[in-house]
Amino acid sequence: MNPESPLIHAKHVFRAAILLLAVLIAMLLGRSLFVPETWGEFGPYRGAAVAEHRDKPIRHGGNDSCAMCHDAEYAEHAGGEHASVQCESCHGPVAFHVDLEEGEVVAEMPVHRSRELCELCHLRLEARPADFPQVDVREHVLSNGGEFTPDACFECHDPHSPI
């Protein structure tokens, strides 16, 4: 470089600019490695996620699938206070119990008998409408002469048709 040129004293600036450029290029390249292939296909999310969710096996069957074998419980439930609550909301997906492809029983249906299950809907909360049945379970059980055990609710209430 010509020693008279003002650029002779700008060597450090060029080095800094090259370094900055290298960092920016590395950032852009690094970004392209991390961006999922189908990101942005339909919107700001991974497009392939739509197909992945669609292709997941069906695990729920609805109340009618339970009625195919358990007609007595179905009838009792349909006439009770919990008629609008799905069987699988408390029991879990029917696929735990029946192979939906083959139609065969594969395992016992799990039955939850914990008061935490009831508390999901019936624990007293300020945010719940006042006319919805809700209790402080401990106080409710003890004031009715019961024992505060993990399955205390089931001593008095039948979840298929509670009072």
Binding site: P6, H9, A10, K11, H12, V13, R15, A16, L19
Partner: peptide
Amino acid sequence: LGVYDTSPEAQAL
């Protein structure tokens, strides 16, 4: 960055 230029011109820049 390996450049040791502390001339008045470089400092002015």
